[in-house]
Nucleic acid binder design. Structure first.
Lengths: 230, 230
DNA sequence: ACGTCAATACTTGTATACAAGAAAGAATAC
DNA sequence: GTATTCTTTCTTGTATACAAGTATTGACGT
């Protein structure tokens, strides 16, 4: 979990399997509720059950699959409680980051934010979806840096990834880009102005967009949500 | 060995091993840097290497041990970065909880807080260390309930446990109890008064105590800290 | 046609055996 | 005595075999 993004040199079979399954689950190629078998995956990768078993363990600890004794392992459904928790953590951290950023933003930091946003404008006008996603990450990372809490970005990214899989169900992302850029501009202005509460409020507004999206998906894709608690 | 009198739940070997090792690590019976071998643990539990291997995997995902290919697995040292991150998350979440609690605290909630604190006074005067720890958890859980974000407590408890192992190095905890109760009282007052910022500030003060403790331990027990980054 | 029951297939949990590499210790050369 | 090199041992990674339980499916009786 800690090294989800870093490129490992010596990748074992387990690493490869985890990477592949993680990607499949994240991109909803493996839908929630899908049953996956150790034997099947082992055959697909041409290895024994053992590495697959280890991989399953890792994924289970990431709460991406659920493996019960003597029952078929399956891709975990979305837990409303888990999503709420994750959203709350991200909102709390991000708001704290924005408060700190507003307090500590230097002139140079302000220019940094401006350049981030102009890049976003560029990506938006070009319809560069993937590029925009990357820039979105970088914007939030920049804010963490400005707040002098770079480690906070790890948390934000982690929580973001936890619910990212949901957003794969969303059809059009492009029509939301202008809204997001507007939000970013509001955040940047508040931070540059040194107004912590305004920055936190702008951040809250920004995050609430995702809440709406999730609420909508929850209705359209109810089958992928877990009715019981965890 | 199979069932020592009490009705055992369906705990697998892996569960038992994880539970035991987790407890040993948390209570610093297994010190950071200690090398542990799959074979050894397997022999101790009278099982094969396989369940131990699974247990190691789970613990590695919890960032409690580090297992590298062909190198001895060892109990992970304290990572300054990880501690900072964890502290930041807990502080962010707890402050957000307190803000919400202050906004949403009813009269009945206020009485709840009062009863929590009087129980803490009782445990303190009796020198009931374990009881106080439990009450401390319950106090923070109550605040989450008052804030109408009960799931936030999961996060707080999780982050708390991540650094709890550090506090095992601390000799006397009793002399800190009066300070903690004072903090709790300040928090409760601000929440009952419906003052979000005062509540958040009181919470920040409360958490800063732990930061001081950690800073002290970092010096006295430098050997247990990891110098490199992760 | 439908309900009940049993056998079968498929699931994960565990044990054992072998492979590959790293670290530590012993032996040797200087 | 010291440094270096080689061997030995210990480590985890992987493959295979067996065990135990569940779910499905088929057959059979009503």
């Amino acid at each position: 979990m800690a090294n989800a993004g870093t490129a490992q040199k010596a990748r074992s079979s387990v690493d490869r399997i985890v990477e592949r399954l993680y990607d499949d689950i994240r991109h909803m190629r493996l839908l929630p509720g899908t049953r996956i078998s150790e034997t099947d995956i082992a055959a697909q990768f041409g290895v024994s059950r053992q590495p697959v078993r280890d991989a399953f363990n890792r994924l289970a600890n990431m709460d991406l699959i659920i493996v019960r004794p003597k029952k078929a392992t399956e891709v975990k459904k979305f837990s409303v409680a888990a999503i709420e928790r994750s959203r709350f953590v991200r909102a709390s951290v991000e708001k704290e980051v924005l408060r700190l950023a507003a307090q500590r933003c230097t002139e140079a930091d302000g220019f940094l934010l401006d350049s981030c946003i102009s890049l976003q404008h560029k990506a938006m006008s070009e319809g560069d979806n993937a590029g925009f996603t990357q820039l979105d990450y970088e914007f939030h990372k920049t804010l963490c840096d400005i707040a002098r809490v770079p480690y906070a970005f790890d948390v934000i990214r982690g929580e973001k990834e936890k619910v990212d899989r949901l957003c794969m169900l969303q059809l059009s992302k492009e029509n939301r880009m202008p809204q997001l850029v507007e939000d970013h501009e509001a955040i940047a202005e508040a931070v540059k102005a040194g107004d912590p509460e305004a920055a936190a409020a702008a951040g809250a507004t920004h995050l609430s967009r995702l809440d709406d999206t999730i609420a909508a998906i929850r209705i359209t894709s109810a089958a992928y949500f877990d009715d019981s608690e965890d």
